[in-house]
Amino acid sequence: MTTKPEPVNGTAPVRRVRSGTSGGRQRLVQWTFVLPMVVFLLLFFCYPVLRNLTMSFQEWTVASFYEGGSPFVGLDNYVELVTDPIFGTAVLNTVLFTVGSLAPQFAIGLGLAVFFQRRFPLSGALRGLLLLPWLLPLVVSGAVFRWIYDEGFGALNQLLLGLHLISDPVPWLSSTRYALLSAIIANVWVGVPFNLVILHSGLQAVPGSLYEAAALDGAGPWQRFRHITLPLLRPVIAIVLMLGLIYTLKVFDVIMILTGGGPANASETLTTWSFALSFEEFDFGQGAAVGNILIVIALVFALFYLRSIRDTFRSRGGRG
């Protein structure tokens, strides 16, 4: 966008003089193009977000729904949340889940992307197959993982027992110790294709001549990766990590299907907790408050993301 040449100062007023009366109509036409988007954003974005904000300052009981009375209680909902013992667990789990998902997703995705950079028979087909986890509805993957993790008959325990890696079946989903880990593993599997696709397309943009030149200069594979691939891939990496982070923060279905946040809140994250508060305990005020906390966190990272994009384009524009 910013690479487009800026209009030279002075042309704008000239045009305005020339167009005269038709300028107003033109502006009107421009606005009619923008209007549907503005209406959409106001209705489906601004209204819910604002309503969520006001809801979090109100006390909601089941009676509020029919009679409409939901008194303003200030920060009470937030205070109650923060003092709730589940709050700490949910925050910690959200951090562990996000970092634990993101790091392996990225590492595996990058590894595979570099691997598929070479052309070999069936590489296209294999890459296509690797997209499968992304294409499957999460409900389906979740249900399959439930079977895989089953303590008695699950494929995972059978495999580990068969290889003599464990002596007793591991209660993947039914122990507070493993539940979060199990959810993370499933989510990594779901997220690898996203990383693979974006990083792989980023790699396509790296000119092959650079590798050839480096190889002539005697650079080994690690050095080529370290000094050519990584620096040139940096903007793409930033985007993948930022988007991945925001996606992972709001992951809901995988956890809900696998463990429902349990057992004993062991895999409760802010998203599942928000759902539980609103739709199981019908405390919509507190549910909305948790939602707002999530929005703020996502917003902070979104700002980082926007900034990194801007810097990327600026540095590219500068270079060009």
Binding site: S174, T176, G262, P263, A264, N265, A266, E280, F282
Partner: peptide, 23 residues
């Protein structure tokens, strides 16, 4: 009465904490 909902949730959590956790 209507409080049952919350108490039953607390009870379910207690059952889970005992069976799955180390409480």
């Amino acid at each position: 009465g209507p409080r049952y909902r919350e108490v039953s949730q607390a009870l379910a959590d207690a059952i889970q904490a005992t069976i799955a956790g180390s409480t």
